[in-house]
Simulated scan of single mutants.
Amino acid sequence: MMDRQDIDQIALRLVSLVPPGLAQAQQDLRANFHDVLTQGLRRLELVTREEFDVQSQLLARTRAKVDELERRIADLEAEAARGH
């Protein structure tokens, strides 16, 4: 998930888009942008990069096991076919 610094940077970028005439409202807008971004990201139920990497590694190992089992089954089927 994004950390507080990333959210602050996005909020600052959004505030920089506010017309200069509304400069007094920029602090309020920055706080509001920060809150909205934080809440929105929390609702997305994102995983951390570490969690993603762990799951990717697990999936790769599982895929390798499935490939090996499929190869073994094919070998056994071929052997059984030769035996009949």
Rank of each mutant, 00 (worst) to 15 (best):
M1T: 09
M2K: 12
M2Q: 10
D3N: 15
D3P: 03
D3F: 05
D3Y: 05
Q5W: 06
D6E: 15
I7G: 01
I7H: 00
D8F: 02
D8W: 01
Q9W: 09
I10H: 04
I10C: 07
L12S: 15
R13S: 11
L14S: 01
L14G: 01
L14I: 07
L14N: 04
L14Q: 03
V15L: 01
S16F: 09
S16D: 15
S16V: 04
S16E: 15
P19R: 07
P19Y: 07
P19M: 05
P20K: 03
P20R: 02
P20Q: 02
L22H: 13
A23W: 08
A23H: 12
A23L: 09
Q24I: 04
A25K: 05
A25G: 04
Q26K: 02
D28S: 10
D28P: 01
L29I: 12
A31P: 01
N32I: 09
N32W: 12
F33D: 02
H34D: 06
D35Y: 08
D35V: 03
V36R: 04
L37N: 00
L37G: 00
L37Y: 02
T38Q: 00
T38F: 00
T38Y: 00
T38L: 00
Q39N: 06
Q39V: 04
Q39M: 04
L41V: 14
R42A: 15
L44S: 06
L44D: 01
L44Q: 12
L44C: 08
L44R: 12
E45P: 02
E45Q: 05
E45I: 01
E45N: 08
E45L: 03
V47L: 10
V47E: 14
T48Y: 02
E50W: 05
F52V: 10
F52Y: 13
F52K: 13
D53I: 13
D53Q: 14
V54S: 07
V54E: 15
V54A: 15
Q55L: 11
Q55D: 11
S56T: 11
Q57H: 14
Q57K: 15
L58P: 00
L59K: 10
L59V: 08
A60S: 10
A60M: 03
R61H: 12
R61I: 11
T62K: 14
R63Q: 13
R63S: 09
A64D: 02
A64W: 03
K65Q: 09
K65C: 00
V66F: 02
D67L: 13
E68C: 03
L69R: 04
L69I: 13
E70R: 12
R71G: 12
R71L: 12
R72G: 04
I73N: 13
A74K: 03
A74D: 06
L76C: 05
L76I: 04
L76F: 10
L76N: 06
E77V: 09
E77I: 03
E77H: 08
E77A: 08
E77Q: 14
A78D: 12
A78Q: 14
A81P: 01
R82H: 06
R82G: 08
R82S: 04
R82Y: 05
G83A: 14
G83Q: 13
